[in-house]
């Protein structure tokens, strides 16, 4: 049994798609051989096909408690680590004539391939950014799928980890995860995924993706900490929702859904009757609870627009940066880190 559960809330109204989270994670965790193509954290434009491509159509998870078959993504569907002619460009002595080019077969997909395409028609086009990481689910489909018990959910904080000494690279976890956030390391022949920066967590430091976010998008903390933002956003205000809750894994990463600008009507006037991002689309991502969440966000925003105060809006703005991390606010630069 998990005694406590760490969680993350991401406010999609604030994400600018800068990928700082993605790179912060990459530099920390996926620089070794066999990890070149891995992005434990991705940020994709919605609506879009995502990473891996069309992952939402790959199955997995549970229905009425029963495991659902999933499809194993291919490397190219994630987007492989492309090789470039760096030697030519930097050392080939050809000056400006040498252009940086991908070597080998031209790729047809990558981890951020359909960036900023979004949906809708001019002048009512819309898009928003969806950062994704392992959801450290309460009922992890990956853990249930592994015949070797190579995936563990830590009782003390609910972080889900692959035991690399047990893993034999059978990839049932990759099939079963409905979020497709597990990668296969071909060099080491095992599965790897987001570790919620547990070595940082154990030192009181928030995960790198959260701490490095310039937009103050991410909140971190224990789900049951009533004095911290996670509990207030998820349980009290109910404005933070799991992605695709229908998969039955009970994610512990939550999203504050995006409020888009209003539409323009045929005359070019603002049409306040309908949102630019269709509610149906957001419901397809976050379930029916998204409508109440959006209504709450609108109400509280209007309160502030009317010169009132809103505890929710103050919380989401994140005036005090360190308060976003549920006590995991220690400065990593003050710690002497040692290699494992």
């Amino acid at each position: 049994m998990t005694q406590r559960q760490l969680a993350m809330v991401l406010d999609l109204n604030k994400c600018i798609g800068c990928q700082t989270c993605t790179i912060a994670c990459k530099r920390l965790w996926t620089r070794d051989a066999g990890m070149e193509h891995m992005w434990f954290n991705t940020v994709n434009t919605q609506p879009g096909r995502g990473t891996p491509r069309d992952w939402e159509k790959m199955g997995g998870g549970f229905r009425a408690g029963m495991p659902q078959p999933g499809r194993l993504p291919r490397r190219g569907e994630f987007g492989d680590a492309w090789r470039y002619n760096h030697d030519d460009v930097f050392f080939g002595g050809q000056g400006a004539d040498a252009q940086l080019r991908i070597q080998g077969e031209a790729p047809d997909w990558g981890p951020n391939w359909d960036e900023d395409q979004g949906g809708g028609e001019y002048p009512n086009g819309y898009h928003f950014y969806l950062p994704r990481l392992c959801n450290h689910c309460t009922h992890p489909a990956c853990l249930a799928a592994c015949p070797r018990k190579a995936i563990v959910k830590r009782p003390k904080d609910g972080i889900v980890l692959v035991d690399e000494d047990r893993c034999r690279g059978f990839r049932f976890c990759m099939e079963a995860c409905p979020y497709k956030k597990i990668y296969f390391n071909q060099a080491r022949k095992l599965s790897q995924k987001c570790i919620f920066c547990f070595p940082r967590i154990e030192q009181g430091v928030a995960p790198a993706c959260a701490r490095q976010c310039p937009g103050r998008v991410r909140f971190v903390g224990y789900r049951d900490d009533r004095n911290a933002p996670i509990w207030k956003l998820v349980e009290q205000w109910k404005v933070a929702l799991p992605l695709h809750p229908e998969h039955g894994t009970e994610p512990n990463v939550f999203y504050v859904p995006p409020l888009a600008p209003y539409r323009f009507d045929a005359q070019g006037d603002v049409d306040e009757s309908r949102p630019r991002i269709p509610d149906e689309y957001l419901e397809s991502l976050f379930g029916p609870a998204v409508r109440d969440a959006l209504a709450t966000l609108k109400t509280e925003r209007a309160r502030v627009q009317g010169r009132g105060r809103s505890e929710l809006m103050d919380l989401l703005i994140g005036y005090r940066w360190k308060d976003m991390f549920g006590g995991f606010d220690r400065d990593p630069a003050t710690i002497e880190w040692r290699p494992a």
């Binding site: 029963m66 495991p67 078959p69 249930a144 799928a145 592994c146 015949p147 049932f172 099939e175």
Partner: peptide
């Protein structure tokens, strides 16, 4: 005999 309910289902 498969120890994983996922493998049984898939």
């Amino acid at each position: 005999l498969q120890p994983s309910p996922y493998v049984q289902a898939a």
